[in-house]
Design a protein around this nucleic acid. Structure first.
Lengths: 210, 210
DNA sequence: GTCTATAGTATGATAGAC
DNA sequence: GTCTATCATACTATAGAC
């Protein structure tokens, strides 16, 4: 059991690293087991299949992030003056909580979500909504309180645009940072990305309706 | 030669359809040749390799889009009162020009760009900048005229956020439309997506700096 | 639980007849 | 230019010894 736990953990760590760097489909079990220094067959023994491994990797982050987000949202709801910026700020804490679990945890989580959205059409999204749909809907309700003049449809699209912005920037973050370093002498720790994103996203969500 | 052109064209059409639907890596040459109803070996005969085919597919769209965009930008520059919205509007015409070439052409092109950004790290981006870097830089200059108070660095990141928003929405468009149809009874032709995107993106780019 | 060995399938690419 | 046939390689998954 002690050795098994170790193998399990080694696989999960290697998998989340590779998945977040290259996506789920582009990462093979061979790469994962090689990086983890475990046997190829052990993945199927512990997780049943590659799909099972993917779910295990993502779920580990969701179980930290989602309850933390839920707490923040409840705390905000108790206050008056709910603004788009404040709701967005609710996401910062839970993300940095991931950072405490593992260095670069927030980045890994967002990249996993980003790849999950485009690959394996909706598989990961449905899984998330089934497990944590209530938290997602809570956030949506608060956004509509902060932007009461918007049609529900408008808000729906704006929020998905915002999600898209964040996820794309994370997934392409490496390329973007390379360009930035080439064009300016930009000494950008990845942490600043979120601070840059927030004003853009907040303004986009609250932009005047047509 | 006449038959050859036909085969070439059949391959290109099948490839651009599948690439835009599933990405480059997830699409196999066998799928392409099967859809095109041509022999498997003909791809390597006409395009040398899968990579060559990818470049050919993308280049065909770039050669229509980029000069058209360049014209629009020059026309705008001659005017006074250059705003973020007006620059963004410059992209609409060239995109719908692709629509004339082939139904759904604009969507295909944007999806190709979207997949190109995340996959094959930077390969496609470098190719674009080498061929059409001047057009891209022209657009950037105009944006900085429209937003003179921004640091170049801020503008750089904002524009890439905007690009990210558009590309992500296109790539995940199918999933998003499915959700929209489920949550509302949303009879959304894909064309309206751009109209929804524009206010969000414009507001994001011009959001007050920190 | 861990390993080796291998089944079964899919990929990109090419040689050679026509 | 087009075809068949095939090579070399990669993948996920599993059976069975230890």
């Amino acid at each position: 059991m002690t050795k098994a736990a170790k193998t399990c953990e080694r696989i999960l760590r290697a998998a989340e690293k590779l998945f977040s760097e290259k996506g789920f489909e582009a990462t093979s079990l061979r790469e994962i087991t090689q990086l983890a220094e475990v046997n190829l067959a052990s993945v199927n023994y512990h997780f049943g299949s590659k799909k099972g491994l993917i779910q295990a990797v993502v779920e580990r982050y969701q179980r930290i992030f989602m309850p933390a987000l839920s707490d923040e949202l409840k705390q905000l709801e108790a206050q008056e003056d709910i603004t788009t910026e404040r709701i967005l700020t609710c996401f910062i804490g839970p993300l940095t909580a991931l950072e405490n679990v593992r260095s670069g945890g927030a980045e890994i989580y967002l990249k996993l979500l980003g790849y999950g959205y485009s690959e394996i059409q909706g598989h990961l999204r449905k899984f998330t909504m089934q497990r944590f749909g209530d938290v997602v809907q809570h956030a949506f309700r608060l956004f509509s309180v902060a932007n009461p003049h918007f049609a529900a449809e408008t808000l729906f699209w704006r929020l998905h645009f915002a999600l898209g912005t964040v996820l794309f920037v994370q997934v392409s973050g490496k390329a973007l940072n390379e360009i930035a370093r080439a064009d300016f002498a930009d000494p950008n720790p990845e942490l600043f990305m979120m601070q840059r994103l927030l004003p853009y996203v907040a303004a986009g969500i609250s932009a005047p309706e047509l």
